[in-house]
């Protein structure tokens, strides 16, 4: 009886959760792993709008390291944390920023893409995205340390799908810890860039 109820409960949960809605690009040729629908948010922010963005230095897929402080006084910065390589939504979020590269440039802003994956995985994954104009950084070792410092590291070791807009003074002007199952709309970010 008990086993039956547990079985029914599990089956119901599986049927209800399903997978995240959305189209998949043929670029990934069916190689995107679908973890199903996830808890929308699984972390607590450690920074706030109006506060100073914690500095960091991370290795880039293109080689070398990039620090947030490299842009201090020079450029506005958008940090785009995405949960993991080779997963739905993440795999087409960043190529979308290619479409509005001119908007970033018009706002004197750079974009830094960050995941907790290692460099080889990121290299293989981002190679399928075509030519991204912005650096992609690896928050792999110590695992998720930058995501954790911002308060967007999830309990399973991935990060949230989160955007941080940081001005030239290093002050956080906008935070969007998005539902991990959904892609943030471009216009919502553009609206925040317009406010800088």
């Amino acid at each position: 009886m008990k086993k039956f109820i547990i079985g029914v409960s599990i089956l119901t949960a599986v049927l209800f959760l399903g997978s995240a809605a959305g189209s998949e690009s043929d670029s990934f040729e069916g190689n995107v792993y679908d973890p199903g629908k996830l808890k929308p948010r699984d972390s607590a922010l450690k920074v706030r709008v109006g506060g100073r963005a914690p500095d960091f230095s991370l290795p880039s897929v293109r080689g070398g390291r990039i620090a947030l402080s490299d842009f201090l006084g020079k450029k506005n910065v958008v940090l785009s944390f995405v949960p993991a390589a080779w997963t739905p939504v993440c795999s087409d979020q960043w190529p979308g920023y290619n479409v509005i590269q001119d908007v970033f440039e018009a706002h004197d802003a750079v974009l830094l893409g960050i995941t907790v994956d290692n460099i080889p995985s990121l290299f293989a994954w981002t190679s399928r995205m075509g030519k991204l104009w912005f650096p992609v950084l690896s928050d792999f070792r110590p695992h998720g340390a930058v995501a954790d410092r911002y308060g967007v590291l999830r309990s399973d070791g991935t990060s949230e799908r989160a955007l941080f807009v940081i001005d030239k003074k290093g002050i956080i002007r906008f935070i969007d810890v998005h539902d991990i199952n959904k892609r943030p709309k471009l216009e919502d970010l553009v609206r925040q860039l317009d406010k800088l």
């Binding site: 189209s23 690009s25 043929d26 670029s27 087409d92 190529p95 399928r128 995205m129 075509g130």
Partner: peptide, 12 residues
């Protein structure tokens, strides 16, 4: 053409 503006192949 069913596309997504986020899809790299669609961009290419």
């Amino acid at each position: 053409e069913i596309l997504s503006i986020y899809c790299p192949y669609c961009q290419n």
